[in-house]
């Protein structure tokens, strides 16, 4: 119903969404490590394309492309800085291997963004909260996390309502110089904070009433259980790691320039 709809999570079911978030996280970290291990463009390209089946299986292509587009500015920046440094340090000459090296660095960044975005696009916050609960993280942290996810969109919507209410009383947020503009937000911030405090008191009251803190041995409605898909992903992860380390140690990797 509002501008803040994007902040709200939606439940989607796909083979990738159903995977155990812990295993997915291990996978993402492994990709991260492998990407750091290599500085040649060919293995990085290989890593890049490796993610695409996951994206397609999870049917998050559109959101995935959007996150890549979001990262493209930074990627361009990394490329230019890399090219420029080699250009200036190698006596104002631009050689093909240098450009390729810059491209590889950029690609490494893209691979990192790509794999993390697959993780976050396919892991619902409640799954993530559950993973936190089942890891050795204290329950209070896991609870704080899910509560934050639950209330951030509510607070965002509330902020919009407060802005509307003050605008209706003649407040012009965009008026004046920088200092004046910051001051303009006081009538928005104070109600927002007061209402957040009121809200947290009510929440605390409701939690107390539902036996919060009754026992140290809390149970959980859901249980994260490793299924066949999770074992498969784990095997794939280990495979990638083994192959990557082997290649890194024993196989000379040609650069594109050399191949040409």
């Amino acid at each position: 119903m509002s501008v803040f709809d994007g902040l709200r999570f939606r439940k989607v079911y796909s083979p990738i969404h159903n995977l155990d978030p812990r295993i997915k996280f291990v996978y993402v970290i492994s990709i991260f490590v492998v990407a750091i291990l290599f500085y040649q463009i060919i293995p990085l390209l290989f890593l890049f394309f490796l993610q695409i089946p996951f994206v397609l299986l999870a049917r998050v292509q559109r959101q995935w492309l959007r996150s890549l587009r979001g990262a493209s500015f930074l990627a361009g920046f990394i490329f230019i800085v890399n090219v420029a440094t080699t250009y200036f340090t190698s006596g104002y000459t631009l050689l093909a291997p240098n450009v390729e090296n810059a491209a590889a660095m950029t690609l490494r960044f893209v691979v990192l963004v790509e794999s993390f975005s697959v993780f976050f696009l396919t892991t619902s916050p409640d799954h993530l909260g559950l993973a936190l609960e089942e890891s050795r993280v204290p329950y209070e942290f896991a609870f704080a996390f899910t509560t934050a996810v639950r209330f951030v969109p509510v607070l965002a919507e509330e902020a919009q309502t407060i802005m509307d209410a003050q605008k209706a009383r003649g407040l012009e947020l965009e008026k004046g110089g920088l200092l004046k503009r910051i001051r303009n937000y006081v009538p928005v911030l104070i109600p927002l904070i007061v209402s957040a405090i009121r809200r947290s008191l009510e929440l605390a009251e409701a939690m107390e009433s539902r036996a919060w803190g009754a026992t140290k041995k809390r149970t959980n409605l859901y249980l994260l259980k490793l299924r066949r898909g999770d074992y498969a992903l784990l095997a794939i992860t280990v495979g990638i790691l083994v192959v990557a380390i082997y290649v890194r140690l024993f196989v000379p990797i040609p650069t594109i320039t050399q191949l040409l």
């Binding site: 509330e158 309502t161 407060i162 509307d164 209410a165 003050q166 209706a168 009383r169 006081v186 009538p187 104070i190 109600p191 007061v194 209402s195 009121r198």
Partner: peptide, 13 residues
């Protein structure tokens, strides 16, 4: 056109 919102806490500061 004066507009009074539902929840007074959304404007008192």
């Amino acid at each position: 056109v004066g507009f009074v919102f539902q929840n007074p806490d959304h404007q008192l500061f």
